[in-house]
């Protein structure tokens, strides 16, 4: 287990290094230089050269890369050129908004899909199973912005049940803010539904084939008790581990949903700063998201190892 964890941490560090290098190199090939962008078109060549020197833009690529990396680690993330704000505070604020949206999506979908998956697994190949399987697959393959448009048209425009925007008016209570987040959360939840329900279903079917399940029936335990204390308890752990592994997907989904609902989260920030060539923000946001994804995946692996003990990881015994 310890060896496995160490090798995973090493792999994460390597992947993050590759990602950060990729971002850094990408930003270097941008047309125009940093100082010119900051000072505007009327700056003299001398002014540009002085600022370039001050910013360290005249240093070789490697030196700049490592000083940037050092700045990132120590929390010195620089200033956004587009928004004129310190990047650290900007990203942390947007991250908070995104986490709230993601939390709403998780809280809505996890219980529903786990229950649907277990119910489907209990009656394998029954009508409910077919419905959950086909529904899950169809919802998973449809892009978030497509389901988002359909949901908006039905629930916000047709029925007027929910607001069309995702951001509540300033000064609203927490409850009202949550109400505005229901509609954006559903497309994210749709894509997750298929994965989670499939996992819960597979776990349930697995349990039904175990001898202890038969023993429980033959002992004459009531069906409800069997489902709660045997099926759910054993089908849940792998499902929990899979849920933690969905963060990679979730970050991509957030970019799309935040763009559709014009929600000021970190996904929208990344998209706007990339298309607006706001380099300091792009670099910091990418590395932050990369870090979150890698840590979540590590957490998923650890959860899997702890919750599903019969699966041994990385040959460690």
């Amino acid at each position: 287990m310890r060896n496995y964890l160490l090798s995973r941490v090493g792999q994460i560090a390597l992947t993050l290094l590759v990602v950060s290098l990729l971002v850094f190199v990408l930003c270097q090939v941008l047309p125009g230089n940093l100082a010119q962008t900051i000072l505007g078109p009327h700056a003299t060549a001398d002014q540009v050269a002085i600022l370039n020197h001050k910013l360290g833009a005249d240093q070789p690529l490697w030196t700049r890369f490592f000083s940037w990396l050092k700045g990132f680690v120590t929390g010195d993330w620089g200033q956004s050129q587009l928004l004129q704000e310190p990047v650290f505070g900007l990203i942390m604020g947007r991250l908070g908004d995104s986490l709230l949206l993601a939390a709403v999506a998780f809280v809505t979908i996890v219980p529903i899909s786990v229950i649907a998956g277990i119910a489907a697994g209990l009656k394998e190949a029954g009508p409910l199973d077919r419905f959950v399987s086909i529904g899950g697959v169809s919802l998973t393959v449809i892009p978030e912005f497509v389901s988002g448009v359909v949901l908006l048209s039905i629930f916000a425009i047709g029925l007027h049940w929910l607001p069309v925007t995702a951001v509540a008016p300033p000064g609203s209570s927490f409850g009202v803010r949550l109400e505005y987040l229901i509609l954006p959360a559903i497309p994210l939840a749709f894509v997750l539904f298929g994965y989670i329900a499939r996992m819960a279903r597979a776990g349930t079917i697995d349990v039904l084939a175990q001898p202890y399940y038969r023993t429980a029936i033959l002992k004459g335990l009531p069906r409800r008790r069997i489902v709660v204390s045997h099926v759910t308890r054993n089908a849940l752990p792998p499902t929990v581990a899979v849920i933690a592994g969905q963060v990679t997907y979730l970050v991509g989904g957030l970019i799309v949903v935040e763009a559709l609902f014009n929600y000021p989260g970190i996904g929208k920030l990344l998209l706007d700063s990339a298309t607006g060539h706001d380099i300091t923000v792009v670099q910091a946001a990418t590395l932050t998201l990369g870090l979150i994804i890698m840590l979540a995946n590590l957490l998923a692996d650890v959860l899997f190892a702890v919750l599903v003990p019969r699966i041994r990881l990385g040959g460690s015994r």
């Binding site: 992947t15 990408l26 792009v282 890698m294």
Partner: peptide, 20 residues
């Protein structure tokens, strides 16, 4: 392949296409 698969695709797409 393992390293490449761990990279979140949509983020990279936003970076590459947004910047280039």
């Amino acid at each position: 392949v393992d390293v490449l698969m761990a990279i979140p695709t949509l983020i990279v797409a936003v970076l590459v296409l947004g910047i280039l």
